[in-house]
């Protein structure tokens, strides 16, 4: 956009799209902010103004709040840990020349295309069911007592399900990164006396740093709002109530829109804090 004229023309032509996006984003946000200051309980017919910050203090001081934040962080952290480590290992394996490489790579991506609700149902009924699940059969075959996964290790089970969905994403991004690693660099390291493990540690890992950062940042954004997997499996019971799920319960189960909206705003703020911390910790990998 070189000239004054083309700049202003561009501005005029972009205006409708910008306006639409602003409306799209701002209207729900402002509505939520407004609701969060009301005593709005539709089933009781209350729609009273001027709660002030009452909803916020009530949401934060409730006994469920702190544990839900901790649960959220555990869920996000656990999934990140499994997908990043698993992704690096899988990407390394898939980078090896194997027969049927193309088919294998497509199969690896497949879980990413399965809808969260479906995959949670499949895991719940086909794998983790204490009577008929495949895990139960496996345990019995080994002469062990089957575990009722979703009540004995509920959070871990959900972490497992979500990791299964996100592992392909991490693998795919890390695989493309590994493929861009200069083979002469690896050969140079080999001639310099680096064995496979030190080559991995000194060459592959630093090369992957940027992609790992991208995986962590993108996954965090999506993992903070995990909902379907919890809804389908435990329904928020047994310490699997995340912040997202708590907001859902306040709005739908308690029918308290005001309180839920306050929780929603708090969730947005917390998510931003997490994002800021992450950018500080891993974001420097994105420069240079």
């Amino acid at each position: 956009m070189a000239t004054q004229h083309s700049r202003s023309a561009a501005r005029v032509m972009m205006a409708p799209a910008v306006f639409l996006l602003l409306v799209w984003m701002l209207v729900p946000l402002i509505l939520t902010l407004w609701f969060s200051t009301l005593d709005y309980r539709p089933m009781r017919g209350t729609f009273d103004c001027c709660e002030g910050l009452g909803n916020y203090t009530r949401f934060v001081t409730s006994s469920a709040f702190l544990s839900s934040v901790v649960t959220t962080l555990q869920l996000v952290g656990g999934v990140l840990l499994i997908t990043v480590i698993g992704g690096i290992l899988l990407a390394n394996l898939l980078d090896q020349p194997i027969w049927g490489q193309g088919v294998v790579r497509i199969l690896v991506i497949a879980p990413f295309f399965v809808m969260p609700t479906v995959s949670a149902l499949v895991w719940k009924n086909m794998f983790m069911n204490p009577v008929n699940g495949l895990f139960a059969h496996l345990f019995k075959a080994l002469g062990l007592q089957p575990i009722d996964w979703l009540s004995q290790a509920p959070l871990f089970s959900i972490i497992l399900i979500v990791s299964w969905q996100w592992l392909p994403f991490a693998t795919l991004i890390l695989l493309t990164a590994i493929q861009s690693l200069d083979s002469e660099q690896m050969e140079a390291a080999e001639m310099d006396g680096a064995g496979p493990i030190s080559r991995f540690y000194h060459m592959t890992l630093p090369h992957l740093a940027r992609s790992i950062t991208v995986v962590v940042l993108i996954q965090t954004i999506f993992l903070l709002s995990i909902f379907a997997e919890i809804y389908v499996t435990t329904g928020g019971a047994f310490g699997t109530r995340t912040l997202t799920y708590l907001v859902y319960q306040r709005v739908i189960e308690s029918q308290n829109v005001g309180l839920g909206s306050a929780g929603g705003i708090i969730a947005v703020i917390l998510a931003n804090i997490v994002a800021l911390v992450l950018m500080r910790v891993v974001g420097k990998n994105l420069d240079a």
């Binding site: 002469e184 660099q185 050969e187 140079a188 390291a189 080999e190 001639m191 310099d192 006396g193």
Partner: peptide
């Protein structure tokens, strides 16, 4: 023998320096 055991050093066309 593996490359590192041969006691040879190589300079590559792309230099193959470790960028990080």
């Amino acid at each position: 023998l593996s490359p590192s055991k041969r006691g040879l050093a190589m300079v590559f066309q792309s230099y193959a320096l470790y960028p990080h």
